[in-house]
Simulated scan of single mutants.
Amino acid sequence: MTESIKHARRPTNLSLDSALLEEARALGVNMSRSAEAGIAEAVRRSKQQRWLQANQAALDSSNEYVALNGLPLYRHRQF
């Protein structure tokens, strides 16, 4: 986790591919931390997808404005 806030951890049962599980054990992979990282990434992507869906109308409106009128304050750009 990249957050500075630590949350309580709780034991959980997961069903995993047995070959993958054996390979991870042989390599010394911390499965709890790896599973947590994968779930955190899935949550991040899901939140991103929901945000994009919820804000799609505003994004479309903004893109349409720029397509019709150009970038606001473009004349003040120095690059």
Results as ranks from 00 to 15, higher is better:
44 R>K: 13
79 F>I: 10
44 R>W: 06
12 T>L: 11
19 A>C: 05
75 R>P: 00
50 R>V: 12
33 R>K: 15
42 A>L: 15
64 E>Q: 07
22 E>Y: 03
63 N>V: 06
50 R>H: 13
67 A>P: 00
79 F>H: 11
15 S>Q: 07
4 S>E: 08
3 E>W: 01
1 M>C: 04
17 D>H: 01
18 S>E: 15
34 S>D: 15
66 V>N: 04
20 L>T: 10
68 L>S: 05
5 I>G: 00
43 V>W: 09
22 E>I: 01
67 A>L: 07
23 E>Y: 07
28 G>V: 07
24 A>Y: 00
45 R>W: 08
38 G>E: 15
71 L>K: 05
67 A>H: 02
52 L>C: 06
18 S>N: 12
27 L>H: 15
30 N>W: 09
55 N>H: 14
76 H>Q: 13
49 Q>I: 08
71 L>W: 08
27 L>Q: 15
51 W>G: 01
66 V>S: 08
16 L>C: 04
78 Q>K: 06
6 K>A: 09
56 Q>G: 01
67 A>G: 09
71 L>H: 07
53 Q>P: 00
72 P>N: 09
69 N>S: 04
44 R>Q: 14
28 G>K: 07
8 A>Y: 03
5 I>D: 08
3 E>N: 05
72 P>A: 14
73 L>P: 00
66 V>W: 04
41 E>R: 06
62 S>A: 15
65 Y>R: 05
57 A>R: 10
30 N>Q: 15
66 V>H: 04
20 L>K: 04
57 A>Q: 14
42 A>S: 11
65 Y>G: 00
17 D>P: 00
41 E>C: 03
8 A>M: 05
18 S>P: 02
32 S>Y: 14
53 Q>F: 06
16 L>Q: 07
13 N>P: 00
2 T>I: 05
29 V>M: 10
47 K>E: 14
78 Q>L: 08
31 M>H: 06
56 Q>S: 12
52 L>K: 09
43 V>T: 06
3 E>T: 02
